[in-house]
Design a protein around this nucleic acid. Sequence first.
DNA 1: AAAAATCACAACCGCCAAATC
DNA 2: AGATTTGGCGGTTGTGATTTT
Length: 283
Amino acid sequence: MGKGRAPCCDKDKVKRGPWSPQEDLKLITFIQKYGHENWRALPKHAGLLRCGKSCRLRWINYLRPNVKRGNFSKEEEETIIRLHETFGNKWSKIASHLPGRTDNEIKNVWNTHLKKRLASKASSSCSSVTFVSSSCGEISIEAFEELKALSSSSISSSNSNVTDTSRVDALNPENHGRSPFDVIGVYGANNASEEVNKPDIYDTAVDIPLELDLDFWNKLDSLGSFQPDEIQSNQAENNKWLQYLGIELGLEVTRDENQNNLSNNAAEPLVPEMYDMLLEYAH
DNA sequence: AAAAATCACAACCGCCAAATC
DNA sequence: AGATTTGGCGGTTGTGATTTT
């Protein structure tokens, strides 16, 4: 590496503000093909006029598989409140206990809803609630026990679920079998492979092997409700996911066609036409 | 109906720690 | 060992949507 710190990006030469569908597609297709080993170099290679950081954020918060969208459930909100009691504003830590939710989203929910709610609750009463507000300065025994269990669980890496989505998401039974988007973390498996074998990603397309973590699969087995066949083919999941995104982003694939593709090509490698279409659309 | 106020959330900024040279 | 790079994190801001006046 060269000496001298280079700025994160040239602010005059990068696009800022909301992401367009075209940009999303470029990012998705690039990461789908090559992974995201180097965020700084990624925008250049993907043909994006964006800062690497911006790409990373966009991917992590909105484009990667397994990101849960939509309102937080009551349980999720209560979990956030409890975890905030323990961790404070450590949003990534809190996010690591909420599969599919990102630190950014949790932070937003906290700042816009939960903080206010707690403040008003605290002003009315400081006792007799399971989840005690900050102003009361203590945590219930049940909450503490649960936190202890969560902390010692093998699924909780020290990092956020952003970097280890496959494990966290896979172990949440609620996450099984929703949409192609919710399928076991394709990119989590990918990340695992990157650590073992780091190809020159910009010269050759990468065949992404599905790395098996015994502990992970044992836990999966113990859940019982999961269908191992669904994740046998990493490529198949990529395929489903791309198709899903294609529709979400308004590409000309009807839902009927997509349904057929999902069932007929589930075990096939990525459909070249799909790639072409995505790339063409992105250009 | 229009203007003002408020809300919600996506995106940016700057700092820090770990990794790398 | 120290300088540099990079990814990640938390705080903050900008802006479009919604609600209130």
